[in-house]
Nucleic acid binder design. Structure first.
Lengths: 216, 216
DNA sequence: GTTTGTATAAAACAAATGTTTTAATGTCAA
DNA sequence: TTGACATTAAAACATTTGTTTTATACAAAC
C-alpha cells in the first residue's frame, strides 16, 4: 500500500459508493457486488477492508455521515455568531441556512438526509450512534438557545415540540423531493431551494409564536 | 374455496401480514418465507395467489392502502362539513383530526404512514398509484379549499408550500416516532398524541398566516 | 535476495431466496 | 359418482448473495 494508486484508495472508493447506494436504496436492497462494481474493485475487497457488509454500513456512518453532520452543526453555530446574535429570527434563520444550504453540496445533502431518514423510520445498525452522538446533543443545544424565549417554566414540552417541528419542516422537504416535485411541478433547482428556505423560515417563525422577549 | 375456513382466507392473511412486514422493514428486507410463515400458509401460496412478490406488494397497496387512504379523506370531508364550515382554522383542524386521529387505529396509522414514507423517500413500485390517485387529487382539493384565503393571484406557489408544510408536520410526527421518543422521552400514548394534534394545529395555523378574509 | 506484510484478483462455498413443479385435498356441478 | 376446478402442501430448482479461500503482485524491511 502506497500513494499513487489508480485514483484513490479502494477502501475510500468503496465507502463513497457504498454510501451513495445505501442512501439511495437502503441496506438490504444493495448487494456487495453492486458496491464493488461501482467502486471498480474486487468483490472480496469489502470483506477484506471491513469484515462484512454490516460493518461497512457502520463505517459509512462513522467516516462519512458523522463528520458531515458535524460540519453542518459547525456551520449553524458559525452563522449564529456572525449575524444578529441570539434573536429568535436569527436562530431559525441560521437553522434553515445551515441545513438547507450550508456547507454541503446538493448531492451530499440528499445523500445525507436519506441515510438519516432510513435510520429514523426504522431503527437500524447506526441509530444509536446517530441519536446519541448527533441528534440528542444538538437538540440539547437548541433547548438552551431557545430557553430565553420560553413562555413559562412548565412549558418545556411545548418547546420540545416546537424544535422538533422545525426539523420536521427541514427534513421533510429534503426527503419528500419526489412527491413535492410531482405535485407542485417544481424542480429542486437553486431558485426553488432559495424559495424553500425563505418559506420555512417564515412558516416556522410564525408557528413558533414566541412573543415574549426580543422579537424579530 | 368457500366460507368457514380456519379463520379467514389465506389470501387475506397473506395480504395482512405482508402489509405489516413491508411497512416495518421495507420490500427487500422481507422474504416470502417470512410472510407465509406469519400468515400460517404454504410458501407457494404467494406465487399462487399473486404471481410473484412484486405483485403481492402492489396488491397490498390496491386492496389495503388505497381504501384506507380514502377512509381518511372521507373523514376529513366529514369533519369539515359538520363543524364550523370553511374557516381556515376549521380546515387545518379537520386535517389534523383526520390524519392524526381519524378513522384509523394507532397500529393502522403507523403501518399506513410507513408504507407511504418508503414510497416517497424512494420511488418504488406503487409510487405512481399513490401519487396519481391519492396525493395529487387530495392536494387539488386543498388548493380549492384554501383558495379563498390566498393573498393574491400570483402567489400560487406560496399556497402550495403552505399545504405541503402541513403535511410535512403530520407525516413527520408519524414517521419519526423513534427519534422523537428518544429525544423528548415522550411515549406515543394517547395523551401525548392529543397534545401533538393540538400543537400541529396551532403551529400550522400561525405558520399559514393567512389573514385575508375570515380568520379563526 | 530473501522475507514479510499488504492489497488485489479469481474462484469456490454455503446459505438464503424467489419461483416452479408436482402431488394431494376438498368443493361444487353435472 | 365423476369430472372439473380451486386451494393447499411438499419438494425441487435456479439464482442471488454474503462470505471465505487460495493465489498473485508488489512494496518495504532485514
Amino acid at each position: 500500500m502506497d500513494a499513487m494508486d489508480n485514483c484513490t484508495d479502494s477502501k475510500d472508493r468503496i465507502l463513497d459508493k457504498a454510501e451513495a447506494l445505501f442512501a439511495e436504496k437502503g441496506f438490504h436492497a444493495v448487494t456487495v457486488r453492486e458496491i464493488t462494481q461501482a467502486a471498480h474493485c474486487n468483490l472480496a475487497a469489502v470483506n477484506y477492508h471491513f469484515g462484512n457488509k454490516q460493518n461497512l454500513y457502520l463505517e459509512v456512518f462513522r467516516t462519512r455521515w458523522m463528520p458531515r453532520a458535524r460540519r453542518v452543526q459547525a456551520c449553524f453555530k458559525d452563522v449564529l455568531s456572525t449575524q444578529d446574535g441570539r434573536s429568535l429570527a436569527g436562530i431559525v434563520h441560521a437553522l434553515a441556512e445551515a441545513f438547507l444550504k450550508g456547507p454541503l453540496t446538493d448531492d451530499e445533502r440528499l445523500c445525507h438526509s436519506q441515510l438519516m431518514i432510513r435510520e429514523m423510520a426504522k431503527p437500524g445498525l447506526a441509530t444509536d450512534m446517530l441519536v446519541d452522538e448527533v441528534i440528542k446533543p444538538f437538540f440539547g443545544d437548541l433547548v438552551v438557545l431557545l430557553g430565553p424565549y420560553l413562555p413559562e417554566n412548565g412549558e418545556r414540552e411545548r418547546v420540545m415540540l416546537d424544535i422538533v417541528s422545525i426539523f420536521a419542516m427541514v427534513i421533510y422537504f429534503n426527503f419528500a423531493r419526489v412527491p413535492v416535485t410531482r405535485v407542485t411541478g417544481q424542480e429542486y433547482d437553486e431558485v426553488f431551494k432559495e424559495r424553500l428556505v425563505e418559506h420555512i423560515v417564515r412558516f416556522c417563525l410564525k408557528g413558533l409564536d414566541m412573543d415574549k422577549k426580543e422579537g424579530a
